[in-house]
Amino acid sequence: MKDSVKIIIPSHPKYLSVVRNVTSKIGEIYGIDETIVNDLKLAIDEACTNIIRHAYKGDTTKRIIIRYTVNPGQYTVVLEDNGIKADKNKLKGRDLNDIKPGGLGIHFIKRVFDIFMLDEKKKKGNRLILVKYLK
């Protein structure tokens, strides 16, 4: 059986710190380099922020499911919500040279994860699959 950790948080920004703490702890358990753990914390936080902001439109009464699976050489996080379906064509960050508020979250996610995939088989809501290959 694969080791995995699943957490469910309310879609309220005050729980983002819980996600960061769990991400840190998993990094510690698997001996992942601290710099990478910091990047993972930011990326997973941004993925949750996107869910709250775009899928749930700021509704803090919904829930977000986050599942972590770490195998030799591979760190996978799956985030699920039951909100508005994301348009994968719009999942692009802003041009980094165009200085304006917003549009950085997707860049922070793609900076660390090697695979960024929206599972189109999910009928209601979104399932985002993120994979990082560990050396």
């Binding site: 960061r20 930011l42 936080d45 922020t49 508020p101 917003g102 979250g105």
Partner: peptide, 16 residues
């Protein structure tokens, strides 16, 4: 101890 894109957006807004 930590900053995300929301924090950065706040400072970009402040700069403008």
């Amino acid at each position: 101890t930590y900053i995300d894109s929301s924090g950065i957006a706040t400072f970009v807004e402040g700069l403008k």
